[in-house]
Amino acid sequence: MAARLAAAAPGRVQHLLDARPVLRALLAASFRPRWTADYLTLAPLSTAPTFAEELAAVAGRGDGRLRADLRETRPGPLADVLLADGLAGQAAELLDWVWRQTVQPQWPDRERRLRADIVGRTARLSSQGWAGVFADLNQKMRWLGDGRLQVNDYPSPPMRLDAAEQLVFVPAHCARGWVLWEKPTRFGMVYPASGILVDPPSVTAAGLGRLIGANRTTILTLLGTPMSTSQLATVTRLGVGTVGDHLKVLLDAGLVTKRRSGREVLYWRTAIGTALAGGTERTGTWGSTTFR
């Protein structure tokens, strides 16, 4: 983990860890393969917590409970520097530093992309139910019905969500997702969001680009998953009006269809549009959504 931070903030991470040995030890103890210490995976206290509130939740966990989280992650004795008072506060300070140095400068663009895609996932919930929601979150995660969710391929029993008062979906820039919980009422699913940081897709076929234009080809390629005009504008970096003009042409040609979902109108490819695009499917992303 320290190596990843160093790549994101070269020089500054090394200086911080050299000056604060407790933070170096904390990072080393917080992760092992396929496991992250619980203090880093707390389920949010509200549907839209501020970053300051989430930091306060980490600090409020207290030194004793935070050490218990570390011992569960890395069984065995803790480093001596982790036994001093104030550990939970220092953990919150580290998270605040990581946010300011590596995430916050890019956050406005990332957040816009995530929020723009909420509509698509919500539409899938309404049309396919919970099984459709969980289908592509994680290859190891399966909705078993009857309030049961299998969250990984460990031999542990499925998670029971019968008493859940809050289930929060959180997209993240990661290779695989994980589960958040404050049993028995608050749960969350962190999942790897696809495509939120990549550049707009290039033309998939030179011939198709010459036929309908590069921008319409890009839009048609993206519409393997239902998306709104605002989503398309965010991902392609075209104006909303320009995207609307291209969508009208594609609609008139029978290459895409549309349906209203709440305040948004979703567009996606027809069978003819998919055939013209060579069957290429692009998976959209979706923002942090809470279902109660």
Rank of each mutant, 00 (worst) to 15 (best):
Y39V: 03
V98I: 15
R269Y: 01
G195D: 09
V133S: 09
R176K: 06
P171F: 09
V98S: 07
V243L: 05
V119C: 07
D162Y: 08
S30T: 08
A214R: 12
W130V: 06
R24K: 07
L66M: 02
H15F: 05
I272T: 12
R210G: 12
A43K: 01
P192T: 02
A79Q: 09
G213F: 01
E93A: 15
A37N: 05
S126E: 14
G239V: 02
A48M: 04
M1L: 13
L180G: 08
A8H: 13
T50F: 00
T41K: 15
A271N: 09
E111V: 12
V179N: 06
L125V: 05
D245F: 12
S202K: 12
D162C: 00
V256E: 01
T234Y: 01
P108Q: 09
D162E: 11
Q14Y: 03
T280W: 02
S127E: 13
R210N: 13
T236P: 08
L247V: 02
G177W: 03
T283E: 12
R100Y: 07
E111S: 14
I212L: 05
W178K: 04
L26Y: 06
L27H: 03
R71N: 06
R34I: 05
L232F: 03
L149E: 04
P49S: 00
D199C: 08
G120M: 08
K140V: 10
A233K: 05
V243T: 02
L144V: 05
R4S: 14
L208D: 00
H173S: 13
P44S: 04
P171A: 09
Q104S: 14
A48S: 12
M189A: 13
L149W: 03
R67T: 08
R210F: 06
R115M: 13
L5I: 07
D153W: 09
A19T: 13
D162S: 10
L114C: 10
W181V: 00
F169V: 02
P77C: 08
L78H: 11
T221H: 01
G177I: 00
A163V: 00
P10C: 10
P75C: 11
R71Q: 14
E165M: 06
R112I: 05
A135K: 07
L82Y: 05
T242S: 15
P192Q: 04
R148T: 02
A88W: 10
S194M: 11
L197P: 03
H246V: 05
R269F: 00
P155A: 07
A205R: 07
A91L: 10
E54H: 06
V240A: 15
L66K: 04
R12A: 15
A84L: 13
A9V: 14
A253M: 11
D69R: 05
L87P: 08
Q166R: 15
A43H: 04
L78E: 11
Y39R: 02
P157D: 00
T122M: 13
R4V: 14
T204F: 05
V58Y: 03
S261E: 13
G145L: 02
K248E: 14
L5F: 11
P201E: 12
D69L: 03
M141R: 10
